[in-house]
């Protein structure tokens, strides 16, 4: 649709919907982002929170080795959580896509149900499972597999488990949608040409669902870096996510300009990853699929 036609064809409902959405995004997304960007160039002030002069010292501070280490740790945990999510979600999505339509709806519904409970509450629930007196330790002790409780809480592993659990649907849904679109005739054709189950999966299913894999990974990786409360509750003081650094600057240290600078850097990083994704998607559309069939 051409832009000039668009304005003329705009019905009342359409105008209203687009208008409201634009207003909302301007007020609550665009405007705050601009404020954060402006703040990131200001100086910390004990009385007024922020003050002039304008400078780039906050950004220089962000590249301090200490923060780089936090960044790398955070990235490692997020990437590991993403990989775990993918490994759990792919078989799950594959299984759902093979169900008939009615059971598909039920399975997806069951997956969504826990997410009606606040994620903070559910993160506390993980504590009950992983803690010294938690379900896992109690079970292992009762079975005489171990003689003293394992340290599961306050480890990187605990943070990764928490991220995985909270973000799993964001991996399952894009995977499911790309698996569902997959033409089942293609698998039959591959089988007809002599491909066994593993070869069909590797040469047909994986390459053709690559857009779903990439989308799911981004939808887990990007938010996982900011989920500070999971690191707070499950990771203790040592296992920080980028979100923890930002939260600390705003709420504890009261260094808003530095926290803003860190936020802007995180936004830039996420924007860069999204850009990579859209480039890959465009490439895939042009080529009819990602990858070269894994040969």
């Amino acid at each position: 649709m051409k832009l000039n036609n668009f304005t003329f064809n705009c019905g009342i409902f359409k105008c209203l919907a687009i208008g409201l959405a634009s207003l909302w995004l301007t007020l609550f997304v665009f405007f705050p982002s601009v404020l954060v960007m402006i703040t990131s160039f200001l100086t910390r002030d004990p009385q007024n929170t922020v003050a002039l002069p304008v400078n780039i010292a906050n950004y220089q501070k962000a590249f301090d080795p200490l923060y780089l280490q936090v960044f790398l740790d955070s990235l490692t945990m997020s990437i590991l959580a993403t990989i775990c999510c993918l490994l759990i979600a792919y078989p799950f999505a594959l299984a759902i896509s093979k169900l008939d339509k009615r059971w598909q709806a039920i399975a997806l519904f069951l997956m969504i149900v826990p997410f009606w409970t606040n994620s903070l509450v559910r993160t506390y629930a993980i504590q009950f499972i992983l803690g010294k007196q938690g379900l896992i330790n109690k079970a292992l002790l009762a079975l005489d597999v171990i003689d003293k409780p394992l340290q599961l809480m306050y480890t990187q592993g605990a943070v990764i488990i928490g991220l995985c659990y909270i973000l799993l649907p964001f991996m399952v849904l894009p995977l499911f949608s790309s698996l569902e679109k997959l033409d089942s005739k293609l698998e039959l054709a591959a089988q007809d040409l002599g491909a066994n189950a593993w070869q069909r999966f590797w040469h047909i299913t994986i390459p053709l669902t690559m857009p779903g894999i990439v989308a799911g990974c981004l939808m887990v990786l990007l938010p996982s870096m900011g989920m500070y409360y999971i690191a707070d509750l499950l990771g203790g003081a040592k296992n920080l996510l980028l979100g923890n650094v930002i939260k600390t600057q705003f709420l504890n240290t009261r260094d808003w300009p530095f926290g803003s600078a860190f936020s802007v850097l995180l936004m830039l990083l996420l924007a860069f990853m999204l850009w990579l994704y859209f480039r890959a998607a465009k490439f895939a559309n042009k080529q009819g699929g990602l990858g070269d069939a894994n040969f």
């Binding site: 033409d183 293609l186 039959l188 054709a189 040409l193 390459p207």
Partner: peptide, 17 residues
């Protein structure tokens, strides 16, 4: 996959990637 028989599908079922 083990039969020496091949099929030409109605929708061709060519691998798009």
């Amino acid at each position: 996959e083990k039969r020496p028989i091949n099929t030409v599908f109605q929708s061709y079922a060519l691998f798009p990637h």
